[in-house]
């Protein structure tokens, strides 16, 4: 995967990702029009399909609304990279099939072209030529992501399987 980096700061909460007033809908496409609007009203115009959202600590804190990762996904975001994520957002993103990578250390700046290897959990900054390693996901999360999300995973397996080695 390859895309341009959009870089934001720490503690971006779910009210900023998608305000509560827009969340009461099953029309997920409508969420894209309001994604990150209180943080950066230009974001939805700038973002291209497959782009990479880069944030600091605790991305996605606050509400349990799954509309937050969905809004990012329908807006075109391909991967979210953060130092670490809020717990519920992290699970939700994997469950709906939005890849998220916890990368404790990196040099990505706004506009950098970035290549992501999800299998290896590797982030490559084409500008600096440097590679950064993401924290390993639990196996069950990789399985869910590989299946395309939790709906597909459960369709396939019927229930959870924990085959940690």
């Amino acid at each position: 995967m390859e895309g341009k980096a959009h870089v934001y700061g720490d503690n971006i909460d779910t009210d900023r990702i998608i305000p509560g007033k827009y969340t009461k809908t099953l029309d997920t496409a409508s969420l894209a029009a309001h994604v990150l609007e209180d943080l950066d009203p230009e974001f939805r115009h700038k973002v291209k399909v497959g782009d990479i959202l880069v944030a600091g600590d605790n991305f996605g804190c606050g509400s349990s609304r799954e509309q937050a990762p969905i809004a990012l996904k329908v807006a075109g975001v391909g991967v979210v990279v953060a130092r670490y994520f809020a717990r519920i957002f992290f699970r939700n993103a994997i469950n709906i099939g939005l890849p998220v990578l916890e990368v404790p250390d990196h040099d990505i700046e706004a506009g950098d072209p970035v290549t992501i290897d999800l299998e290896k959990g590797e982030v490559f900054n084409q500008r600096s030529g440097k590679r950064f390693q993401a924290t390993q996901l639990p196996k069950v999360m990789i399985d869910i992501l590989n299946a395309g999300g939790l709906v597909a995973y459960l369709k396939e397996h019927g229930t959870y399987q924990l085959n940690e080695e």
């Binding site: 349990s64 519920i88 699970r91 459960l154 959870y160």
Partner: peptide, 29 residues
């Protein structure tokens, strides 16, 4: 399926907030 679910720790339950798809999976399994 609400982030303030840990409130039930007031009476000593282990209660966690989850998103909708996680919740659907619990309803199923």
């Amino acid at each position: 399926a609400d982030s303030h679910t840990p409130t039930y720790g007031a009476i000593g339950a282990m209660a966690c907030g989850v998103g909708s798809t996680d919740l659907a999976a619990v309803m199923k399994t």
